[in-house]
Amino acid sequence: MEMYENENDQVDAIKRFFVENGKALAVGVILGVGALVGWRYWNSHQADSARDASLTYENTVSAIRADQPQTLAAAEKFAADNKNTYGALAALEVAQQFVDKNELDKAAAQLTQGLSAASDENLKAVINLRLARIQVQQKKADDALKTLDTVKGEGFAAIVADLRGEALLSKGDKQGARSAWEAGVKSNASPALSEMMQMKINNLSV
């Protein structure tokens, strides 16, 4: 539930709510008592729904990690039914289970579904990075490169460079892979990732 510093913040939130829901209401109506009551009810309902989704997500993930019977199917259903952040996170968990089983097509399908549910750009970036990694494993280098092109932000530059190098190398493009890894080493990579990419560069010369 949002917290407001003053009444103006709450009024702004009410306006956003009605605009986002396509209600062409005058400002005077928005500020009316009925609108305020309706807003509080809706906000409370949304908070309850979010808590329910959060609890179900946590229980589902705990069951998956405990390898309990039937939980994978339940998690798939939860991911499909919840077109929100929790659904996207569940799709990530389910995809990892399929990767562990070497069922890469199913893992990729889960991640694609998760992308459609995610709204946060950072979460989308994480999903796309995992999808690109799977596509490299599937020998779908061109698809992986296209997926990596959608990942923006300096915080992901090093990981993108590493995966781009892997995709290009799988296509036989050693020079392209070298350039990608060299760019990654020069980026904001962690010491461990930077060292790993440098090792890959060195191995190209062997």
Rank of each mutant, 00 (worst) to 15 (best):
Q68H: 14
E2D: 14
A157R: 02
Q10D: 05
A74R: 12
A63Y: 07
T150S: 10
R164W: 00
A95V: 11
D105C: 11
K106Q: 15
A117M: 10
Q198H: 02
A125M: 02
S190N: 09
A180N: 05
D100R: 14
D105G: 13
S116R: 14
T112I: 14
D142A: 02
K106Y: 02
V206E: 15
T60H: 04
I64R: 01
F78E: 00
K15C: 11
D173M: 02
G34E: 09
K186R: 12
E103G: 06
V19W: 08
Q198P: 10
Q10S: 12
V136M: 04
K186E: 06
N188C: 03
P191F: 01
D48T: 11
R130F: 05
L193D: 04
Y4D: 12
E5V: 13
Q113N: 12
A161N: 09
G22A: 10
E58P: 03
S190A: 09
L168E: 03
M196W: 08
G176K: 01
I64N: 00
N43V: 12
T112R: 15
L145C: 07
T56A: 13
G87N: 09
L145F: 04
N202L: 12
Q175H: 08
S49W: 06
L204P: 08
S44V: 10
V19S: 08
D162A: 06
A75D: 01
A35E: 06
D52C: 05
T56W: 09
L104N: 09
E166A: 06
S170A: 15
A161W: 00
E2A: 14
E58H: 09
A13W: 01
Q10K: 07
N59Q: 11
L193P: 05
T112N: 14
E182I: 14
E121I: 05
R40Y: 13
T147K: 03
D162M: 06
A158G: 06
N59M: 11
D162W: 09
G184H: 00
G114H: 03
N43Q: 13
H45A: 15
L72A: 05
A109G: 08
R164T: 08
S119D: 15
I127V: 08
L193V: 12
V61G: 01
S44K: 08
H45G: 07
A180P: 03
A161K: 01
A53C: 04
I64G: 01
G87M: 09
L204A: 13
R16Q: 12
V151T: 00
M3S: 11
G22T: 00
A95D: 06
Y4F: 15
Y57D: 00
A88V: 08
S187P: 08
A189H: 03
P191V: 12
G28V: 13
A192I: 10
L115Q: 04
V126M: 04
N8Q: 15
A47H: 05
A24I: 03
E182C: 05
D143L: 03
L25D: 00
I159H: 00
A158T: 04
M1R: 09
K174S: 10
Y41W: 10
Y41L: 13
S194C: 08
V33S: 05
A177N: 10
L25I: 03
F98N: 01
D120A: 10
T112Y: 05
S49A: 14
D162G: 05
E182V: 13
H45W: 15
I30N: 03
G32T: 07
R133K: 12
V94W: 01
A66V: 13
S170K: 08
A91K: 00
K152R: 12
L163T: 01
M3T: 14
L148H: 00
G184M: 05
